[in-house]
């Protein structure tokens, strides 16, 4: 019995010290981690909507629906949004920037884990540049040999764009 108590005491102490040190490290890095995530998000938004000066997240509860892209004076020039769909071997996440009139400015695939050399081509400019200045995405050509990955990007962006157009045009 006494032995058992000793085991518990040793293990408990180790756990206590461990959690205390983790708490310290966490408080040191927390702000930095949040800032990094924000900077990253900001950077990808900037990339698909370079004309914007800053972005404003439009939220429903805690979930971000889309971002309003604003110029220096704070007037709306367009929106940015995240679209995702199941690709061939992963969920493909795309960030897209769209002007007020519904024209896509640019897209960027931010996260995917598709087949190297085939599906991963959706991240390359030869594919993503096709989206520039398009209103409808019917003309965007899927990559030969990577139809499923390409469709994931095209369809998810088109669907989300359609949804948001409705919101934009609503009074």
């Amino acid at each position: 019995m006494k032995e058992m108590a000793r085991y518990a005491a040793v293990l408990g102490t180790i756990c206590l010290v461990a959690s205390a040190s983790l708490a310290v490290v966490n408080s040191l890095t927390r702000d930095k981690i949040i800032a990094q995530a924000q900077a990253e998000e900001e950077a990808s938004l900037k990339e698909v909507m370079p004309a914007a000066d800053h972005f404003e997240a439009v939220k429903k509860d805690t979930e971000t629906l889309y971002y309003r892209a604003l110029d220096k004076d704070g007037s709306l020039i367009g929106i940015c949004f995240k679209a995702e769909a199941k690709g061939y071997s992963s969920t493909v996440q795309t960030v897209a920037g769209m002007f007020k009139d519904g024209t896509i400015n640019a897209i960027k695939v931010v996260s995917q884990n598709e087949t190297p050399g085939l599906g991963t081509k959706v991240t390359e400019p030869s594919f993503t540049d096709q989206f520039k200045g398009k209103k409808g995405l019917e003309e965007v050509q899927a990559i030969t040999g990577a139809t499923i990955s390409s469709r994931a990007v095209i369809d998810s962006v088109a669907k989300k764009a359609e949804e948001l157009k409705g919101i934009l045009n609503a009074p």
Partner: peptide, 27 residues
């Protein structure tokens, strides 16, 4: 560390350092 609870003790120690590495890397 008593021999009979050494594995959980080791794991706690290791997990702590791994979490530190992960947080540092994220930051």
């Amino acid at each position: 560390i008593p021999a009979r609870v050494r594995i959980p003790c080791f794991i706690v120690v290791i997990a702590t350092f791994v979490t530190i590495v992960e947080m540092a890397m994220k930051a």
